[in-house]
Simulated scan of single mutants.
Amino acid sequence: MAARIDLLVTSGTFALDGGQWDVDNNVWIVGDDSEAVVIDAAHDASAIEAALGGRRLRAIICTHAHNDHIDAAPALAEATGAPILLHPDDLPLWKQTHPDRLPDQELADHQMLEIAGTPFQVLHTPGHSPGAVCLYAPALNAVFSGDTLFRGGPGATGRSFSHFPTIIDSIRDRLLTLPPAVAVHTGHGDSTTIAAESGHLGEWIARGH
């Protein structure tokens, strides 16, 4: 059976630089009837495990290490035996949330992952954080963008470990070069497409998010 994309929305708190904000996070579950991966284990390990419906969890893939995207990852890993994958450039952020539990495996630019016969390519897209990645699945006509690209613009860069010119470079060079019809499944809010966002780069630069 071909891989499918399921969405679970969980709610919790994003905390960084001394501030806290209530947030809703998109947890993407990709797989078939027997196995799956979770992209960003946010807030509620029990809800994510329930959404798996008994499928084997092959990996917990972190698009980046802000606490709202990783806070449930160790508990989900403990419950399922799945490894946690993170780009090493985000380890300083990871350790702010989980100082006593490191990720299990490193993600690398151009790395290929596979679930349910479906390949994913890891795209290193720094800017929102140093180790931010997106996951491109050509067979699903989809890219999972974390907080690098949203419907209507780039992810926030006003806090520590972030850099606006870098996120613009990442979006221009790594995401807007994908086919226009590719769906962009984001870390928060509604999905979009490469085509819908590709004409607005100049506006974003002018706004200077």
Rank of each mutant, 00 (worst) to 15 (best):
A183P: 01
I61N: 11
K95L: 15
I205E: 15
A77K: 00
G81D: 06
A59S: 14
H200M: 13
S129F: 12
D190G: 14
D147I: 03
L113K: 08
A206P: 02
E203K: 11
A142R: 01
N67T: 12
A3C: 00
L57T: 02
T193G: 01
R207F: 02
T80E: 00
H43A: 02
S145H: 04
A77N: 06
D32N: 13
P119K: 01
R4A: 08
L201M: 09
E35R: 14
L76P: 07
R4G: 03
A15H: 11
L113W: 02
G81I: 07
Q20N: 02
S191R: 03
D68F: 15
G152S: 03
G12K: 10
V37C: 01
L91R: 15
A3V: 02
S170Q: 04
T177I: 13
L93K: 10
L102A: 15
L7P: 06
H163L: 02
H128K: 09
H43K: 05
K95W: 13
D33N: 12
H185Q: 13
L140F: 07
D109P: 13
A82M: 01
E35N: 12
W28Q: 12
F164P: 04
G187E: 10
E203F: 12
H188T: 08
D89K: 14
E106P: 06
P138Y: 11
P99V: 11
I115K: 00
A137W: 03
S129V: 04
L107P: 15
N67C: 14
A47G: 00
Q111R: 05
T10I: 11
N26M: 09
G131T: 14
T125R: 03
I39H: 14
L201C: 03
D6W: 08
N26K: 13
A65Y: 15
F161P: 04
I70H: 11
H188D: 04
D17L: 13
L86C: 03
